[in-house]
Design a protein around this nucleic acid. Structure first.
Length: 514
DNA sequence: TCTGGCACATA
DNA sequence: ATATGTGCCAG
């Protein structure tokens, strides 16, 4: 356990000021460096060649337009894509080294929002974070040359509000704010998924933060979506010209759609949606535009991650990458799967979930990244434990292992076997801090002052890292609440078969908390 | 709030 | 042509 601390060099929690530098206490191996790349982004690197990596957000201007109004992303049971699409240009990779690119979305704070009077405001505490999932870019693993050749698009990533989602989509809570992040994990021989020293870096573009909604709240957002998303072209025509036309139209019935958007366009002057009233320093952090929620990071959802997370704050641009050092042994697996979280929710699908055999999980873990063709489509999900700290500590980030990357203490990894190819079939393994991964948990807890919250406190081990599925960190104690469980889903034919269920072990606290 | 079906759009 | 991504709207 200790590792966590050691490992991480945690960064100091971001304060408003931004932390640009985190400290590395961990020192040794991990040092995190942050650099700024794009104006808004932050990146954290670990070492080993990861420091020269730069990531540029594609269509940043468009993201900014949405951000200024307060970006909203629809979440549906079946899964909805994000718009604007998350696409990045990556440079600085070693052309021959293989990397896995992943994305996740961590809670930007631990608040629940409401949209009233044409603006967003905090209305309460966030729901307990669910285990977060990681979306592995389908080309992963691939050589640096491949990733740098063209834009890397995460447009197929989908967001869902179905906590039991069997497709591997990123699960979010409606009316909660999230910060997407991209992680670049070195996947060469020396950094297999299960490796202890996996190097990775995380990049966060504050302008991509958004509030998950079941239906658009701010008409300005609706309008921006319609105006810019080709698939919504059928709803265009809301400009003034259109209004005129419409007004001339005899019966509205025939042209039902025009209305809303049109009408509302001008409503809110809104300041950014995100400029919410910040609440406590710690808590909400400024949502104001200028600052990012980052500050808050502290509380983030438990899950999140790792240190890296800490995102947003103001504008940091870089993140750190860390490498983990896990050492030990891994223990692995357990099959346990539990559904704690899920269970509570519903249990129908229980049958679908089966404990994954350990081996499987491991396999996934390890293999996927290995480049085998088969696993290329692997998707990893990370579940967070719930800690609440959303982005909070960078410190924690220290995850060296890739798992640790996941923000959450626990991670779930799902890989789609190439064979099956079905996009949705995959194996999954989840790690909670407990067993498999040492979670960054440590992260949460100890380090950051802010964290406060409950969540992290819980974890006994602060250590943060988690070993990859296979390895288990010694640190991880099983006892901690955060264990992960691996689940495998049986059902063969249906797409669902393989679901990964994220489970979070931890729930207890939160439950209360929120 | 959230859901499912719709008409329209892209690929 | 099929498959799928969109916002709208009634329920």
């Amino acid at each position: 356990m200790a590792d966590a601390e050691e490992v991480f060099g945690l960064l100091s929690p971001p304060s408003d000021s931004d932390s640009k530098e985190l400290n590395d206490e961990g020192g040794q191996e991990n040092r995190i460096q942050t650099s700024c790349k794009s104006p808004s982004a932050k990146t954290s690197y670990i070492q080993q060649g990861m420091e020269g990596i730069k990531v540029h957000l594609h269509e940043r201007e468009l993201w900014t337009k949405f951000h200024e109004v307060g970006t909203e992303m629809i979440i549906t049971k079946a899964g909805r894509r994000m718009f604007p699409s998350y696409k990045v240009k990556v440079t600085g990779l070693n052309p021959k080294t293989k990397y896995i690119l992943l994305m996740d979305a961590v809670p930007a704070d631990d608040h629940r929002y409401k949209f009233a009077d044409n603006k967003w405001s905090v209305t309460g505490k966030a729901e307990p974070a669910m285990p977060g999932r990681l979306y592995v870019h389908p080309d992963s693993p691939a050589a640096g040359a491949h990733w740098m050749r063209q834009l890397v698009s995460f447009q197929k990533l989908k967001l869902t509000n179905n906590h039991l989602d069997p497709f591997g989509h990123i699960i979010l809570n409606s009316m909660h704010k999230y910060q997407p992040r991209i992680h670049i994990v070195k996947a060469d021989e020396n950094n297999g998924f299960g490796s202890k020293n996996t190097a990775f870096c995380t990049h966060v573009f504050p302008e991509t933060s958004f509030i998950a909604v079941t239906s658009y709240q701010n008409h300005k957002i609706t309008q921006l979506k319609i105006e810019n998303n080709p698939f919504a072209k059928g709803f265009r025509g809301s400009d003034d010209m259109e209004l005129h036309r419409i007004s001339k139209i005899p019966s509205n019935k025939e042209y039902p759609r025009v209305p809303q958007t049109t009408i509302h366009q001008r409503l809110a002057p809104s300041t950014t949606a995100f400029s919410i009233e910040a609440r406590g320093p710690s808590s909400a952090g400024g949502l104001s535009v200028s600052q990012y929620p980052c500050e808050k990071i502290k509380n983030g959802p438990p899950d999140l991650l790792p240190p890296s997370y800490a995102v947003p704050h103001n504008h940091y641009q870089d993140y750190h990458c860390t490498r983990r050092k896990v050492d030990g042994e891994c223990h692995t697996g357990d099959h346990l799967y539990k559904k704690s979280y899920i269970e509570s929710i519903t249990s129908e699908d229980e049958h679908y979930y089966r404990p994954a055999s350990y081996s499987q999980s491991l396999a996934l873990a390890s293999s996927p990244y290995r480049a085998e063709s088969t696993q290329r489509q692997a998707c990893m999900y990370a579940s967070t434990s719930q800690a609440m700290e959303p982005l909070t500590n960078l410190e924690d980030m220290s995850c060296s292992t890739w798992t640790s990357m996941s923000p959450y203490g626990s991670c779930t990894v799902a890989a789609v076997p190439s064979v099956e190819r079905r996009p949705y079939q995959h194996f999954s393994a989840h790690f909670t801090s407990g067993s498999l991964v040492p979670r960054l948990s440590g992260t949460s807890g100890h380090t950051s002052p802010q964290l406060h919250r409950d969540t992290h406190t819980v974890y006994p081990n602060p250590t943060a890292h988690q070993p990859p599925p296979r390895q288990c960190g010694p640190n991880v104690s099983t006892s901690s609440p955060e264990y992960l469980y691996a689940h495998a889903m049986p059902r063969a034919l249906s797409p669902h078969h393989y679901h990964a269920v994220p489970t979070v072990g931890i729930v207890p606290e939160w439950s209360e908390g929120t």
